[in-house]
Write a protein that binds this DNA or RNA. Sequence first.
DNA 1: GTGCTGACACAGG
DNA 2: ACCTGTGCCAGCA
Length: 113
Amino acid sequence: MIDELPEYAERVLAAAELIPPGKVMTYGDLAEWLEEGGPRQVGRVMTLYGSAVAWWRVVRADGKFLPGHEQRALAHYREEGTPLKDAGRAATGHMPRLDLRKARWHTEDVSPE
DNA sequence: GTGCTGACACAGG
DNA sequence: ACCTGTGCCAGCA
């Protein structure tokens, strides 16, 4: 439940909550979906309120992780079966990245309302 | 008002 | 794969 927040923030958070497990959306896609603001505005909302929603399903367009949140995000992705680029590869020091080609969620018929 | 900053995106090198 | 610069839109000093 979300209350007492600026309307834009509510919309961003609501949209984030609609992303199904195992899928992700980029900041830019989300902004386009809402037809308001831009990637940076979405990122801003996530900075402020991201902890209230599934923040790991809102990602950068290059598939990299948030510095400092890599482990947490990775744990969620493994749990949800989100496609990772080097999913099969074992630990080698460098973290896997998201395979956006497969993981990106296409909103198509869904409306962020 | 002016300028810097940021959980961004994209093109170059 | 990495780094840099530019464009972008709000928020804040």
